[in-house]
């Protein structure tokens, strides 16, 4: 399969996007990302330490922007203004790189997105030349609106960020897919390989995950599992699954049985 995942002006062969949070150290982060085969890697934007640990290694020394497409996120932002400011800082930090993952959170407990602020921030960012991949609720109407606005990828949650609950509402994901003109990438909530495969079998163009890999007992092995699951799920979607039936249907001939 030499299919390409087209996101805005960029194209990719891997459909697994991974985060860089919650790993034991930067070596493990890098090794897991390599094992995952991901080409798009999310990062967060935070204050530098101011001299306390000047020689502390920097994430981008391990995950080079020359080798991976860095996707800065706006995690931790609870309003449009902070999210826009974070994207602008990220663009400056990454020498004009305009691809961002917009997420505006609504509350700490569920980490569900605030869609009013998400839509407002997306509008401003698109007008300013950003290519916006947007984390959003799994609501077909909001997803369509973000698609129509010109977001380069719409990324509904499978379940709450970091929950590992998997795709809790495959029906809404299917409706979102029906209405979409841009790649739909399930972002957040995947817990294990079968969750990623389910998202891909539904027809999603990709899956974005962090905790499922970083908090596995063996993150490197789970990264490999997720790589395989996304590939398998995509192949199964393209292959087209058999029809389900209510009752048994013998696979072996019913004639010619010995008597």
């Amino acid at each position: 399969m030499s299919e390409v995942l087209q996101i805005g002006s960029r194209s990719f062969s891997s459909r697994l996007l991974v985060g860089t949070g919650k790993y034991k150290d930067l070596e493990e982060t890098r090794d897991a990302i390599i094992a995952s085969g991901a080409e798009i890697v999310t990062v967060a934007i935070r204050r530098t330490n101011i001299g306390q640990n000047a020689d502390e290694p920097n994430l981008l020394e391990f995950i080079s922007p020359d080798k991976w497409t860095i996707l800065p996120n706006t995690a931790g932002c609870f309003n449009a203004e902070d999210a826009i400011r974070t994207c602008m800082l990220a663009r400056e930090l990454l020498d004009g790189h305009n691809l961002v993952k917009l997420e505006v959170l609504g509350e700490q407990k569920t980490l569900y997105p605030n869609m009013t602020h998400t839509i407002s921030a997306a509008k401003t960012l698109i007008e300013d030349g950003f290519e916006v991949m947007v984390y959003c609720s799994d609501d077909p109407i909001f997803c369509k609106e973000l698609d129509d606005m010109g977001c380069v990828s719409v990324m509904p949650l499978a379940s709450p960020i970091g929950s590992g609950l998997g795709v809790v509402n495959p029906h809404t994901i299917s409706i979102i897919l029906e209405n979409s003109s841009k790649p739909i990438i399930v972002d957040a909530g995947v817990g294990t390989a079968s969750d990623a495969a389910i998202a891909m079998e539904l027809g999603c163009e990709g899956v974005l995950m962090n905790t499922a890999i970083a908090k596995a007992k063996d993150p490197i092995l789970m990264a490999e599992a997720m790589k395989d699951a996304v590939i398998s799920g995509r192949k199964a979607f393209l292959a087209g699954r058999m029809q389900k039936t209510e009752y048994g249907n013998a696979s072996s001939p019913t004639e010619g049985l010995i008597e």
């Binding site: 860089t20 949070g21 967060a44 934007i45 935070r46 204050r47 994430l59 981008l60 930090l93 990454l94």
Partner: peptide, 10 residues
């Protein structure tokens, strides 16, 4: 003044 860099995140 704010100085920021990239850190691990999802």
């Amino acid at each position: 003044i704010e100085i920021v860099h990239a850190v691990g995140g999802g």
